[in-house]
Amino acid sequence: MLLTATIKFGSLLNALPGSVAQGLIWGILAIGVYMTFRLLDFADLTVDGSFATGAAVAVMLIRAGVSPWIAIVVAFAVGGLCGMVTGLLHTTLGIPGILASILTQISLYSINLTIMGKANQPVVAQEGKYLLASLGYVNNKDAFVKTLFFVGLIVGLIVLISVTYWFFGTEIGQAIRATGCNENMSRAQGINVNFMKVVTLMISNAFFGLSGALYAQYQGAADVQMGRGAIVIGLAAVIIGEVLFGSFCAKQKMAFWYTLVSVVIGSILYFIVYATVIWLRLPSELMKMFSAIIVAIFLAIPYLKAKYTKAPPVKAAAAPVPEKAQEEAKKE
């Protein structure tokens, strides 16, 4: 009995590196979700389409003999175009954000089928080339290949996180955060909020495209369905990261940098939970429902907290606090 349990636990441990790799690749997507959902306050469902679009574009390019490096750059750019479509539908045509993103997502389904020619296209390394990600690297007997893959992914993510951190500290990034926080104030301060929305949607969807391009290589195929529910996984990663590391991140000097890291860790944890669910022989077809329930619960918590904790009376809150302290200081 004990022996079989040990073997079984061993199988979970065996699955862990794969979960970490998946979590890192989806972590790119989660960073994009953080940008739109948290910084811009925009529920962008384009991701379900643009993730698969990035995958489709990269796979078809690699199959045509293009370098995987160029393929992911193109997937990044095409993802950005998907975000631009959503942004323009919303800002220039006045379509509500969530609906605009659904319209883009639905049309991307057709576009992805057109790009691939059929619902599923496998990808293998072409002669003399290598894929940038692969399940084969994770299970590789050669420790060097395995290490190189993980170190490469982690370094890549740190670079992405650092660039994101820098960008949102610049004048444009600050204007984007202001737009997400308070549109009236932003317009009063001369910020073109429509422009900022389109820019953010382009960047986040470029991240989605990149994530999809890597994930297709990892699983060895692009599939027209692979983006389904991506937004929920991305949100789950964001929320797991915030719940577990939120207070730690807030204390750091570069709080936003740590927050982005915690979002990626949230993504890794999500896939470890997923592997555990499968290991426990729980019905894995329920996983998406579990994810949705987890996201719903954690999105509801701040709302319910605000509703049922007594808010301080408005007038007491409106009085400038330090005034009294100053008066007392003067007396002394």
């Binding site: 610049t170 004048e171 444009i172 990034g173 600050q174 204007a175 955060r177 932003s186 301060q189 001369g190």
Partner: peptide, 20 residues
């Protein structure tokens, strides 16, 4: 400081220079 920085850049072209 970020709020004030937004005000001090009101009407100016936003660039990729650091915000504050």
């Amino acid at each position: 400081e970020e709020n004030l920085a937004l005000a001090s850049r009101r009407g100016k072209h936003k660039t990729l220079r650091w915000g504050v």
